[in-house]
Amino acid sequence: MAKLILSMDGLVLKEIPLTKERTTIGRKPHNDIQIDNLAVSGEHAVIVTILNDSFLEDLGSTNGTVVNGNPIKKHFLQNNDVVELGKYKLKFVGESAPAANAEKADFEKTMVLRPSAMKTPAPAAATTGPQSAVAQRQAAVQSAAASAAATGIADKDAKSAPGGPASIPPAAAKPGQPLGAIQLLSGGNAGKELELTKPLTTLGKPGVQVAVLTRRPQGYFITHVEGDKRPTVNGQEIGAAPHSLKDHDVIELAGVKMEFFLKA
């Protein structure tokens, strides 16, 4: 949730979460954020919050509202914007800032498309018989998409098309992440090497002892899956939680020793 941090002369006075659709700022006590200072008008400004977006609007105050040094009438608040009201400063901090700031607006919350929007073109073709039902539906879907675009929903998503959620290859490791591999040190297949390219690789004998090696952006992890005995890493039995693997760790599983290493 977005919030405002009220400060004066660099001293933080208060944190105000923007929970309401309208948050009013002014000198009079009925305001949501009351700032008792003569430089602030009785009803100075208002912040309108719609979903993840907040807009600041000056309500015709005597001394005006300044954002990042510029006087504004209406302003779309972005993360780390500083609103100045006389000697007071209000810093705007967006939802889960700052890491997600760039992506924040991209991934919209699930919304319902009202059935009424789907029905609009139906009456025109209502009497043309069942064959046209499919065409009607198609037209309805198209018009719904258009109306979504008109209301600005698709507009916001359009930004997400390049670099948005869809274009991230799922389960792929970050480029530049070293590829891991294991080499068997004992048993019948000693010397055999296995590259760990998949997001997860299972090892061991089902029903006896199984562990899984997972490839994550942070590196490789080993987790115990089934069996009474847990695998060991460098002679130490691992816990229930995933165990991070380092270069040249020696894993022992179902009586077989193997070495984990990173390829250049």
Binding site: F107, E108, K109, T110, M111, V112, L113, P115, M118, V134, R137, Q138, V141, Q142, A144, A145, A148, I153, A154, D157, A158, S160, A161, G164, P165, A166, S167
Partner: peptide, 29 residues
């Protein structure tokens, strides 16, 4: 969802759907 209806009515292919913008619009809830 709007996306599924678009796939069903042939406006877009499932491949395009993976990259579609309005993944978030559901038609029933």
């Amino acid at each position: 969802s709007l996306l599924q209806e678009q796939i069903d009515s042939g406006i877009i292919t499932p491949e395009q759907a993976k990259k579609a913008a309005h993944k978030n619009l559901v038609t029933k809830a």
